[in-house]
Design a protein around this nucleic acid. Structure first.
Lengths: 343, 343
DNA sequence: CCTGGCACTCGTATGTCCAGAGTGCCAGAG
DNA sequence: CTCTGGCACTCTGGACATACGAGTGCCAGG
């Protein structure tokens, strides 16, 4: 028998009410309290029966016999999927977002501000991934002579990110040759995607004088290295102080969460698994990482154009205000995308 | 009467023992336990009398009548100043430090690794300031044409830090003029300290053709802006999970600490106030910031040469292993300095 | 199918009590 | 003058018992 067959509209309304109340009060909610606070049009006994069914199906759960009910991960899932809608931001909030982000001076600042903004809006831990380099294109490559045999390589991406590397060349590198290399390198690589750059530059060394080829090759391989290495994306996190707003399951739950959040790898995977557009919610045990089994992740991709270049999101207790959080995350992503497109 | 007159060697030994035991056990320490664990050569009654004096002078304190003693901030201060020495790192630890830091690929990575290392070594919250730009010199300024009227300005410092700005010029900027500007700009500014750059470039616009002067001025003012703006230093923090190792005064103490640590400004001030060389310790209420009144900060400057270019340190409970922490902080600072000097 | 009522469960809060740790003080010894 | 052993006193924390109340499940009747 398909489970949801047993859930008529009223039972779903009861589940919705339970989630809403529990998120508000942070305490298990009983049948009496439900009929008081929501106009369900039926008595508490009826609600009790509905709750019994909901529990049987695994949507809610009773901490102990004489307590109210609490939504399970499955219950939140149903709530998110079918019982609610993303709550749009108010005009004032939108204005605050643009206003705050517009004052950013460079990419680092955009990311830093985004983190703070998300953390404040959702009152949760915010996570923002730097615009991905894999999908980025090269805006410019600059070569700066430091000593006769050392060159600084500066890579500038279309998202405004800058990476630099010191290159130790096997031979002397003259100003003229360097200028030549710079010009030709940019002629071929500028505007291209990272992945394509190596093939595009493959035959570049051959076009140089014999004594310079070794140096050219060294410079190029450093460039490739930088391209690949920077594909390990960076993630910035903030708002950890918000974790302290839940003093009841402290510190059982906060310690593993903090640990997880300090691991770049974990953070990346948290955000990384989504593919489809739109806000993604991963609830409790749906999370791969153990330490985050009692938390939910709300994330979404953002990009300067239509394409998603990176993701951002928040991490909070499974007991969170999903509609509001989803709305905030979506709105912030949208505006960050606009900022990136404009710069 | 000078207070320390009343503190003979044995009383100091008692204080030292109290601090050591309290740091180890995290529990108030009584006279009995003291004579058991340390060979003081006197009876518990004598120790009790000494403790009474120490309490009278404000070095220790009794949470309640029938409890042992706990050091006060003043007690820790005396301990740090006179009763202990910085504990040097073991050979294995030194090797681990160099090994870990040697694998850094760029400045960001050095800082990131330093934070992780410090947090792990001390098992506390680590704070690392980026090498200060105020004391830095310009290594190179690069100008990259984006569109006919837009230029990207890239500033590279001797510590390897890179900052970029987009410049919107009032008129067209030709390749030739740009190359000219680049050359002359670097000829004057490279190797110079930030503060001196504006004066050195003061008469540069005049040397250009009339129609280019406005653009040159715009580029220069953006450069000055970047120089000044980046004097707001950046700070990276990590190891917050270590805060959860003290579950007893939770979450009363952890919330304000996390909040404080998320404020860049507060972090900077935490590190910023020290001037003299050597490890600095600020204990409990010696800290200006309220939220950190029950924590201590151990910090030290580091630099690529003899000069201090930035600071790093850790934040932990006043009840911490001062000798060990001071040793770790000092050692890490030293090795980071070496890495910076080498790159 | 809904409702009111009732018996039952169980967690939490409250109150009492006891043991143990630690202190302060005093009188005597060195 | 300083140290020591002894003793009476204080106070916290844990154990135990009890009462309360929120909440449930079930049943019979509308």
């Amino acid at each position: 028998m398909p489970e949801e067959r047993r859930l008529d509209d009223r039972k779903l309304a009861v589940l919705r009410a339970i989630v809403q109340d529990y998120v508000g009060t942070e305490e298990p909610v009983g049948s009496k309290a439900l009929v008081d606070r929501h106009s369900l049009g039926v008595s508490s006994a009826t609600v009790r029966n509905d709750m019994a069914v909901l529990e049987e199906e695994g949507y809610i759960h009773q901490p102990h016999t004489s307590a109210g009910r609490v939504p399970t991960d499955k219950g939140y899932r149903l709530f998110v999927d079918r019982l609610t809608e993303v709550k749009p931001m108010s005009v004032a909030e939108r204005r605050a977002i643009t206003n705050f982000l517009d004052h950013a001076v460079d990419l680092d600042d955009v990311v830093a501000r985004t983190v703070r903004l998300l953390a404040q809006l959702t009152r949760q831990v915010a996570v923002v991934q730097y615009p991905s380099l894999t999908r980025s294109t090269v805006r410019h490559v600059e070569l700066v002579p430091l000593t006769p045999t050392r060159v600084m390589l500066v890579l500038i991406t279309d998202t405004g990110r800058v990476e630099q590397r010191i290159v130790d060349c096997p031979g002397q590198v003259g100003e003229v040759m360097l200028a030549d290399l710079r010009t030709r390198l940019n002629a071929r690589a500028a505007g291209q995607r990272f992945a394509e750059v190596p093939t595009l530059l493959q035959d570049l060394p051959e076009t140089f004088a014999l004594q310079d080829r070794a140096s050219v090759t060294t410079v190029l391989s450093t460039l490739y290295e930088a391209l690949v290495e920077q594909t390990e994306e960076r993630v910035v996190m903030g708002g950890t102080a918000n974790l302290t707003r839940f003093p009841h399951d402290f510190p059982l739950t906060i310690a593993p969460v903090l640990e997880a959040l300090e691991e770049q790898v974990v953070l990346l995977r948290l955000l990384g698994e989504t593919a489809d557009p739109g806000v993604m919610v991963r609830i409790g045990h749906e999370n791969a990482y153990e330490g985050l089994n009692s938390t939910s992740v709300v994330s979404v991709g953002y990009g300067s154009g239509e394409e998603t270049v990176a993701k951002l999101g928040v991490v909070g207790p499974t007991r969170m205000d999903y509609p509001g959080t989803m709305g905030a995350v979506r709105a912030v992503a949208r505006y960050v995308g606009q900022i990136l497109a404009a710069s």
